[in-house]
Design a protein around this nucleic acid. Structure first.
Length: 488
RNA sequence: GGUUCGUUGACCGAGUGGCUAGGUGCCGGUCUGCAAAACCGUUUACGGCGGUUCGAAUCCGCCACGAACCUCCA
């Protein structure tokens, strides 16, 4: 399979030609959510970005195995390797089982991603479902000497590891610089080095989620599950590992170290990091308190919003910026996307009804190549969309009878619009689903045909009455040269 | 403090040495019974100062401002 896809690889900080390990297959692992609270829009951006990447890889003909985990254990608050994890804390607060917390927010996560029309991953493994695999990895790392035990807790020895490997490879940092930026070890710490992190943490009697291990009862460290599950389902070395940029410095850096120490090979060939969603230039995050919940966005109930925006408007808004750039969230920006999105989709509907002529008077044939070229350049969806808008102009001119298109060109244009709008960008019409059944549509068309008749008779009173009353009911009526268009 | 990245027109957002990105908005026009839509045209750009070059938004240096990471975070 010959492709010209270039991917920006964080490992080397440049775009590289994508060559998968197995010719026509791609293994992709993306760090999923920690399910202890509602996902906010920033979280969604990452998963929507990777959905686009996944969809384009499929478009190119690859057989993709997309693994995205659910972190449901072992994620501690703060950097002290002690105490309960986020799930247990929340469970205590809400007086439920930790697994009820996990289930609740996993359900919510799936619901939201479904609303955003993202494709589900092929495998969605959980940390609690892979405790024994994680224990095996800890054992192996202990054997290789890159980890040590201190009273039931196992730490990864970063300084020892950096003698053989480049620990800060993902962020291009030297060990000395990293050490400089880390706080001094406090008196309570048991670990030897400031950068050392826990692979396995000893449980206290009151710890809610704990499992037996060769080192006593405990629970896995945060980074471990990704090493365990990615290797289990994709192999010790696979093609693409992705996640949000905020995971780069700590989570992914430690993941690489663990996997390297355990399997003696780098886990992934291409590391991809998606950038953050910002509000007034500042990163959206739970801790900053500037997180938008998707629900608040759809209904417009968030104080910073003037109105609600539909899920597809938001998806389109995100696709209009590149995944490696920060994207700033504002009313004005969303309104611009809402208008642009509806114009694009109306043009797409118009395209489906277009009739052809003997020849084409306008050039549309190069669209597929242009869109592919854009997407091949590190998934540059904003450029692909700009080409679709250029084609939209042609569609409208043909629709107005000012240009013509041949049967061959029309079929190609329809195919390309379908492929890129629906399959790659993952956009779907939001009007059709609510438009209901055929009889209902026919009834509306009956009314509009009566209006057309009235217009022919210059009976403006009847004509305007039909239009105004339909408009009042929420319909949008547009007159065209020889008829009408409508939507709700 | 260290590391890294960014600063593009009214707003969002691509672009890495010469070629109108695109979207939204504004203004004018065509069309229309009116409106909407559509189409055409127009408008405001590359943070500042130097340097390299025939030519720089794009490369280099300095400065200013902002952000991210270094601590849980998609």
């Amino acid at each position: 399979m010959e492709h010209n896809l270039y991917i920006y690889n964080t490992l080397r900080r440049k775009k590289e030609l994508f060559v998968p390990i197995h010719e026509d297959k791609v293994g992709m692992y993306v760090c999923g959510p920690t399910v202890y609270s509602d996902v906010h829009l920033g979280n969604c951006r990452t998963f929507i970005s990777f959905d686009l990447i996944y969809r384009y890889l499929i478009y190119l003909g690859y057989k993709v195995r997309y693994v995205r985990n659910i972190t449901d254990a072992g994620h501690l608050e703060g950097d002290r390797d002690e105490g309960d994890d986020k799930f247990a804390k929340k469970a205590k607060l809400e007086q439920v089982e930790p697994m009820e917390i996990v289930q609740k927010y996993t359900n919510g996560f799936h619901e939201i991603l479904n609303i955003f029309n993202t494709l589900p991953p092929n495998i969605e493994p959980t940390a609690t479902g892979h405790i024994s695999e994680q224990i095996e990895i800890v054992k192996k790392i202990l054997e290789t000497g890159f980890a040590y035990e201190k009273s039931g807790t196992i730490y990864f020895d970063v300084e020892k590891y950096s003698k053989d490997f480049q620990y800060g490879i993902l962020t291009n940092r030297k060990l000395e610089d990293l050490l400089e930026g880390t706080r001094e070890l406090g008196g309570q710490d048991e670990k030897k080095g400031r950068l050392d992190f826990a692979l396995w943490i000893k449980a206290k009697p009151e710890t809610l989620m704990q499992w037996p291990s060769p080192w006593g009862w405990g629970f896995p460290g945060w980074h471990l599950e990704c090493s365990a599950m990615s290797s289990k389902y994709l192999g010790n070395t696979f093609d693409i590992h992705g996640g949000g940029m905020d995971l780069q410095a700590t989570h992914h850096t430690n993941e690489i170290a663990q996997s390297q120490a355990c399997f003696h090979t780098a886990p992934a060939n291409y590391w991809m990091h998606t950038n953050m969603l910002t509000v007034n230039g500042v990163r959206m995050s739970k801790s900053a308190g500037n997180g938008f919940l998707p629900k608040e966005l759809f209904t417009g109930s968030h104080p910073l919003l003037d109105k609600g925006y539909s899920p597809m408007t938001v998806r389109f808004f995100m696709a209009q910026s590149h995944y490696r750039s920060t994207l700033d969230f504002s009313n004005e920006a969303l309104q611009a996307s809402e208008k642009g999105y509806s114009r694009l989709m109306e043009g797409y509907d118009r395209l489906k009804k277009l009739s052809f002529s003997d020849t084409s008077s306008i050039e549309t044939a190069g669209l597929r190549a242009k869109c592919e070229e854009a997407m091949n350049d590190d998934f540059n969806s904003p450029i692909a969309i700009s080409h679709l808008f250029d084609a939209l102009r042609a569609i409208n001119l043909i629709h107005d009878g000012k240009e013509t298109i041949s049967a061959t060109d029309l079929k190609e244009l329809k195919d390309v619009f379908k492929l890129f709008i629906e399959d790659v960008l993952g956009l779907k019409s939001e009007t059709e689903t609510s438009a209901g059944n055929e009889a209902y549509k026919k009834a509306i068309e009956l009314l509009l045909n009566m209006r057309l008749e009235a217009k022919r008779n210059k009976d403006w009173a009847t004509s305007d009455k039909i239009r105004n009353e339909l408009t009042a009911l929420g319909f949008e009526i547009k007159d065209t040269k020889d008829g009408f268009e409508w939507k709700i």
